[in-house]
Nucleic acid binder design. Structure first.
Lengths: 217, 217
DNA sequence: TAGACAACTGGACCGGCGGTCAACTAAGCT
DNA sequence: AGCTTAGTTGACCGCCGGTCCAGTTGTCTA
């Protein structure tokens, strides 16, 4: 980022205009009914420019999401605890999930757009290539890596990698996204916290049966 | 189901041929690169027939999924414990989640197809209708309702509705789906079980901090 | 068996999409 | 001012989901 100067002034201006227009449209319409042409028109540029800058629909969405999540990434890497390094894994994970819910909540349709874009992903000119290795966007990569590492740090006996996918995946679900749009971010964060607390508290593998803990009802 | 006779013989034959062809294609290709024309051709019928029978892409996918999950639904409603009524909520939930993972695992691309179809959902002739109430397919409805009820039965203090969405949503995540395709269904079921056990075990709201339980590392 | 009718069928057709490209334009260097 | 080259553009392409109606065929009645 902040490269010497490989980008011309008008190009930079257009790139920002496109990003702005995209988030503008995203805040008003469902992502799957926003076409690339609409975005181009709203940004006041030609469609070709959009594709030249971002390569594809997914490229655009990823770029936008990355921009939005940049502050969070910095905070996690070098910021103060509990988000940044220094706090115990439990607290860091809770803080991180809270932060993610916040980011997602403030960027409602964006995750859904990412998911939708991922569906029609894959350059069409790359013939074959069926299998798709499945790297994922760098942003998702970072989020997943961080969560996974925190889980593993606290509970090496758990499958942190998979649990991180599960936690992150739940944010892509339509009903959850809709709830976020209704402003119930705190409700989601609360349940996620409960889930994490339980995950860290349970002795793993051992079902709750026979537990003397206060049984409800 | 098993209606008196509102469906002609050839219509029934074609419906099954289309369903068969769809699952056949679904098992070989990623859902988003299967077009309705391909399905029609594979089933040996015209494209119009497919749309006449199922209304839309999503209608097809829902019908297929419903067919696949019918046995499970019956087992839950009237079958023997622990899946059916009679067992305590914990065991029923674990059994149900195991069963769902199994169904999803055996129908790999189907959930993804549903998700993808849901993106472009909404009859185009229904002008306006922006907001979309968001009922969801009856299948998802049933799954969510069952999980939600079991959670609430065992732990009324938790947000069963939301937690059910989170649990179900995690199955739609791309990385999880990919893992299922690699045959790691048991790994997923195991982590889900751990998550549920923790959810039921934790006293809710209370973070794991200060817990004397064996802290790793 | 014959006739009639509705359900069903198929594929040409439509609007619109994501993505491409070659001709054009202008920013930045000297 | 003139040149180089990144940047821009919109017509264009192939394809897709979905529609439509003329033609076909199963089924019911007599």
């Amino acid at each position: 980022m902040t490269e010497a100067r490989p980008e011309r002034a008008d190009a930079a201006r257009n790139r920002r205009a496109i990003l702005r227009a995209t988030e503008e449209l995203l805040s008003r319409h469902r992502p799957e009914q926003i076409s690339m042409e609409q975005i181009a028109a709203a940004a006041g540029v030609g469609k070709g420019t959009v594709f030249h800058r971002f390569g594809s629909r997914m490229g655009l969405m990823v770029a936008l999401m990355q921009e939005r999540a940049y502050a969070l990434e910095e905070a996690v890497r070098t910021g103060p605890p509990p988000l940044g390094p220094g706090a115990p894994p439990d607290e860091r994970l809770i803080a991180f999930v809270d932060a993610i819910v916040d980011v997602v909540g403030r960027n409602k349709g964006l995750l859904a757009a990412l998911g939708h874009a991922a569906s029609s992903a894959g350059r069409p000119d790359l013939k074959g290539h069926e299998g798709d290795d499945g790297d994922g966007h760098p942003l998702h990569r970072f989020w997943h890596g961080h969560i996974s590492a925190l889980i593993t740090a606290r509970r090496p006996d758990l499958d942190g990698d998979l649990l991180a996918h599960i936690l992150l995946g739940s944010l892509q679900s339509e009903p959850v996204l809709r709830m976020l749009e209704r402003g119930e971010a705190e409700r989601l964060a609360g349940s996620l916290r409960a889930l994490i607390a339980g995950m860290f508290a349970a002795p793993s593998g051992e079902p709750a049966s026979g537990e003397p803990a206060g049984n409800s009802v």
